[in-house]
Design a protein around this nucleic acid. Structure first.
Lengths: 211, 211
DNA sequence: ACAGAAAAATAGCCCGAACCCAAAATTAGG
DNA sequence: CCTAATTTTGGGTTCGGGCTATTTTTCTGT
């Protein structure tokens, strides 16, 4: 059961999964998400249709395979923040660092991938769902961090505001990516925007959830 | 083309549409959104399957027939705010008024309807989409209201924060509704929560978009 | 080393939503 | 009353999602 077992079974599973995901992403970027059928992916990956839906229950998962990272990143940032730091400052720090390393989690990708996302209603819907789960996770983290009374709406509200900031900046990066701007320029712009957005929230949340 | 023409054709169209929508909503609340097929709705409404999908291109539209109201309400509130009032204050005022009249737009509904929404992934996804369109519309309204430079992220960020507040409160009301609380009690709680949430945003956005 | 257990991959099926088209029924206007 | 426009209908397809029984591959204990 452990992740250490380099058993042949585990290995082949990983290979098969990766093969299917790569094939699917390639086809999606070539012809658009909706235009590619699961059957085509299966054929291209030399695998049965059922195997595809076995590894990826929903078609969207074939294109967005890093959901775990997206949903848990903010909550972990808050949970791991150093003493004396507010949730807002921690998230600002984490965002700027992610921009600097051109992290996909804040929206960096190839222009083709960004266009594929924007062109597909299914994928944008799934992205919204991921943002929502991220908000939920962050709300939980803030609740444990501030131990409020049960009916206090502040943790949920703060989580909504903070993820809203991240979401706005994510869309900004994606828009610039679709416009074909180089990652370096996008990083500069995103940094400036982030300063503005986090500064905007500072008076409201600067003193909230300080460890 | 005018809405005044009480032509027989228009009349029958309205009747048919209403009949289908009512039948669908009844079936959805009885057995859940996903468990009811379009064919069943058609049979129950004594109409062809194609007629249903003709009036309601997506199945979700059968349950959420007030999308226009939801998506435009915030933008109109901001556009119509009196002189000297900030966007935040206008939205606070509109929200509290909506709560007082138990407006569905802020989440008031029957417990059955609220449960139907929460139990259906399709409907919650659609609701997220509506919230998103609402944010877009509000962002447009704020852009025309503040005339910022093209790359200023503030209007989009402010729109995201303000809709985040509304969305949080919406979910709060729906949760209480599912718990079976009477509308009066929900209204009292929602008012208290709203004060807190809008107060939270006041230091950040109190001076933004003042007409 | 091998047989039996466990797990993964396969083939083939059904169902429902969404979409399309040609034909029939209904209404509006001359 | 008759024709044109529009709505409704019936029948069809495609695709995603789901299921089950069966075969193939990997693992484990003797």
């Amino acid at each position: 059961m452990g992740a250490m077992t380099a058993g042949l079974r585990e290995l082949k599973k990983r290979q098969t999964r990766q093969m299917i995901s790569d094939t699917a992403t390639r086809l999606f970027m070539e012809r658009g998400f909706e235009a590619v059928t699961i059957a085509e992916i299966a054929t291209a990956a030399q695998v049965a249709k059922m195997t595809v839906t076995n590894y990826f229950p929903r078609k969207e998962d074939l294109a967005l395979d890093y959901h775990e990272t997206i949903t848990t990143a903010l909550a972990r940032t808050v949970a791991d923040r150093p003493t004396g730091e507010s949730a807002l400052t921690a998230l600002r720090r984490a965002y700027l660092a992610a921009v600097e390393r051109h992290d996909p989690v804040v929206g960096f990708s190839s222009p083709e991938f960004a266009r594929m996302l924007a062109d597909s209603p299914t994928l944008t819907a799934r992205l919204r769902e991921l943002h929502d789960q991220r908000e939920e996770a962050l709300a939980d983290a803030l609740t444990t961090a501030t131990a409020p009374t049960p009916e206090d709406p502040t943790p949920r509200a703060a989580a909504a505001l903070l993820t809203a900031a991240h979401r706005t900046l994510f869309h900004h990066v994606q828009t610039l990516t679709r416009a074909g701007r180089p990652d370096e320029e996008i990083a500069t712009t995103a940094t400036r925007s982030a300063e503005k957005v986090f500064d905007l929230l500072e008076p409201s949340l600067g003193g909230y959830a300080v460890r």
